[in-house]
Amino acid sequence: MPVIALAAEQNKAKIVWWVWPILLFVTTFLIGIFGVMAGIGGGVLFVPLVSSFFPFHIDFIRGAGLMIALGSSLAAAPVLLRRNFASLKLAIPVALIASAFSIIGAFGGLWLSRLNPAYIQGSLGVLILLIVIVMLISKSASYPEVKAGNSFAQALQLNGVYFEPTLNREVEWTVHRTLAGLLVFCLVGFLAGMFGLGAGWANVPVLNLLMGAPLKVAVATSSFSLSITDTTAAWIYFNQGAVLPIIIIPSMAGVMIGANIGSRLLPKVNPAMIRNMVIGVLLLAGIRSLLKGFGI
């Protein structure tokens, strides 16, 4: 195995520089398509796949991962906010907690990577395998039953209303288990900053299953709140110099164009099949990251 890995590294070194941004664009274009169709966004696929199969150092890949998640979120947020699917009221406290911890995560990640990049690569592998488990076992509820009288939710006024076209009426919603939800967002923010992953895979189950927001509100608010959570961590990577335009810009273009096409293809495909396929790719990328962490 080490001989094969060494040969692969030598082959990477022989490839002319401009091939890599093109390969990156093609890869992220596919990530954009499948990320949208699987409902997880591109960030969580980008870091493990690119760090496993491309020659860039993981410090730059994590910086790019954050920028990609930020770019995708900024592109989607205005529409989601205007249609009231994303809630500013819900995002403000949730993103405040997550963004504070994403700063700690960003510094933790850069520090760990400086000690030994294999620590980051290996723990990324473990995290991706955990995400696979979360994706396999988590269910969703369109309109979860929420117990009234959660004082924390009332104090923070965590409620809202949106027009649901499939029901042809307005849906009013509130949340519960607010404190537990906010505590989980500490961890979500930390992991987003440390690994440069978008946190949609965690945000949606926490907002929907734990806090009881309707699925549509959970998905949209998750997508929007990434633009706030990832901002603080992205500034840290940016200021530390962990941004290479040659990685970031082709990747952002690929993910954004791919996501656009993916959203158009969505009605024509079987989402369960795509989701299983993405879980399979994540599983492979997680194992590859873990092996790379062990120097294999």
């Binding site: 205005p78 500013l88 009221k89 509130t174 810009i249």
Partner: peptide, 27 residues
């Protein structure tokens, strides 16, 4: 009790302008 924040639309408008400007500049 179930109203959304009235500045949500303002936020969306400013965000859209900045994101689009950033994208053009980036490319």
């Amino acid at each position: 009790k179930y109203e959304n924040l009235d500045n949500q639309i303002l936020y969306a408008g400013v965000l859209k302008f900045l994101a689009n400007s950033g994208l053009v500049l980036l490319f």
